[in-house]
Nucleic acid binder design. Structure first.
Ligand SMILES: [Zn+2]
Ligand SMILES: [Zn+2]
Ligand SMILES: [Zn+2]
Ligand SMILES: [Zn+2]
Lengths: 135, 135
DNA sequence: ATAAAGTCTATAGTAACTATAGAGTCAACA
DNA sequence: TGTTGACTCTATAGTTACTATAGACTTTAT
């Protein structure tokens, strides 16, 4: 199949597929006489694997590592596990940060009566006074 | 004060300060005879305001808007409030996404016994079978 | 035969910095 | 006075994972 069909099947953009190839996540496929890329079922599987990993927010570099590991099926899998676990920690950390952020934003939002002027706006006042506090 | 001192006081890097100037968040300060930037207390306040906004994850473009609004103190403040509210929604959305992500990652992590080979690794098997499901 | 749709490469843009290179400035010290 | 070291200057490139062109070529359909 040509790149456009693969793109539809995987819900990737054509440019993204070419980008993955450049980044060595997909191996360069065969070309037609007219120099069009020609993919097979194995390319499709590979790309879907990549997409699955991306929905887990794995970086391209991490996915590259996973793909390399898969080609050495008999070595230990610790590194896979470590990668996932360190991800979990990062995600948890980010959730904490965002919760605290949300609180601050809610607090700010409540200080705005929403029918005054910029001068009177509690949000801007709060932002400015926080600055003063830090100095 | 020179840029290095401002950087220390605000816990910003020197490059970041110059970057903010280029991006019009800080106005260009006076220069010494030797062409060094010279800052005063007002620059310090401005930069701390920016930092405060950045900890709330406001984008530079949004901060630029806030700074512009502050120079028209008598207009309505709705836009300030809307900006903050839309941020809150984005943050909430992201928290939801991350929680779901965390679940998936935890599930994956549990499928790895951690003392087998790549071939046996539950994580890679799971990632691969999820692909198969989608096809 | 021609037009439309798809594909090709190469290049630049995105956000918010970070990290150089290479040159100039300034204060202190021997 | 000369020199060292710390600081600053501009300009440029790199980061991540794409996205969006431009300009040329290929294929498909009418
Ligand atoms: Zn990671
Ligand atoms: Zn307000
Ligand atoms: Zn926003
Ligand atoms: Zn495993």
């Amino acid at each position: 199949m040509k790149i456009g069909e693969l793109a539809k099947l995987t819900d990737c953009s054509v440019q993204t597929i070419r980008y993955y190839e450049k980044e060595q996540l997909l191996k360069s496929p065969e070309r037609s006489e007219g120099n069009f890329r020609l993919y097979n079922k194995s390319s499709l599987k590979q790309l879907m694997f990549i997409k699955q990993c991306r929905t887990l927010d794995l970086t391209l570099s991490e996915i590259r590592q996973l793909l390399e590991l898969q080609s050495s099926p008999s070595i230990q899998c610790n590194s896979v596990n470590n990668m996932i676990d360190s991800h979990i920690q990062q995600v948890e950390q980010r959730i904490k940060e965002l919760n605290s952020l949300k609180e601050q934003l809610n607090y700010l939002s409540n200080t705005c009566s929403n029918n005054g002027t910029i001068e009177q706006c509690g949000i801007l006042q709060k932002l400015t006074s926080d600055v003063a506090k830090n100095v």
